[in-house]
Simulated assay, not measured.
Amino acid sequence: MNEIKLEAEARTEFGKGAARRIRRADKIPAVLYGHGSDPVHVTLAGHSTMMAFKHSNALFSIELDGKKQLAIAKDVQRDAIKDTIDHVDLLVVRKGEKVEVEVNVHIEGESAPGTIHVVESQSLTISADATNLPEWVTVSIEGLEEGANISAGDVTLPEGSTLVTDPSHTVVTISVPRAEVAADDDAAAEGEATEAEAPAEG
């Protein structure tokens, strides 16, 4: 993914009251940290930041006082009701550096007829180049039968990425809905009862 440019301004006010004033001005309080440097408190433009965070594991080019810093989001605090961003922690990164991130699991294909799939893990933790982070990993369930399961170690990762999640951790399972299983059992029991009630020939 290409770098997403975000303009930042140095922040001198702190506390809940200051944060509310910042958000009322359509800005978002944030902090930049990493590589042993002191944290830098900034504000980001509200609308452009909200649009940028529609991408998972985006790489940001933060412009502050005429200088640029590459960064990724390590923590995003959202308002549970408004679904707006309240605060962002940004980790400064460099090209060639490896970082650990969460990537969403994207399901592709359809399992065998009569079965359903259950996603046990919505995301996986991987280690990847900070400037080439994937937004998601794809898991194919095409044609899988009842009882099949896909573990984290079975998932194909993008080139240059390594798995951090336990490889034995279950990602997707394939099963038959209980209602259908119960219906099949009832039909079988009814058939047995009919045979038992039928008069013997001769």
Rank of each mutant, 00 (worst) to 15 (best):
G153S: 10
N149S: 03
S127H: 12
D65E: 15
K54R: 12
P134I: 00
S61Y: 02
K16F: 04
L32D: 08
A8N: 03
N149R: 06
H35L: 10
E13N: 09
T125W: 11
E102F: 14
E7N: 14
Q69W: 11
V139S: 01
F53N: 09
A10M: 02
L44S: 13
G147D: 09
I126P: 00
D79S: 13
S161R: 02
A193F: 12
V31F: 00
K5E: 13
V93M: 09
G202C: 00
A25N: 06
R23L: 06
V118L: 07
R24P: 01
V181C: 11
E197K: 14
A179N: 09
V93S: 04
T162Y: 05
A80L: 15
T194K: 12
T170K: 11
S37Y: 01
A112W: 05
E9F: 04
V181S: 12
G153K: 11
E13F: 01
E7C: 10
E13H: 02
E102G: 00
Q77S: 15
E195A: 12
H87W: 08
E192H: 10
D89V: 08
H106I: 12
I85L: 15
I107Q: 00
Q69H: 13
A52L: 08
G15L: 11
N149W: 01
L59K: 04
H117M: 04
G147R: 10
V31Y: 05
D129S: 10
D86M: 14
H47D: 05
R20S: 02
K27E: 00
K27V: 05
L90Y: 11
M1L: 00
H117D: 07
E102Q: 06
A152C: 04
M50K: 12
H106P: 06
A130F: 14
E146A: 15
H47E: 08
R11E: 01
E120T: 04
L163V: 02
H41E: 10
G46E: 00
A73I: 14
A45Y: 07
V88W: 00
A193E: 14
T156K: 07
V171S: 02
L6I: 03
L91W: 10
Y33M: 06
E97T: 15
K74F: 10
E120G: 04
E120N: 03
F53P: 05
N132D: 13
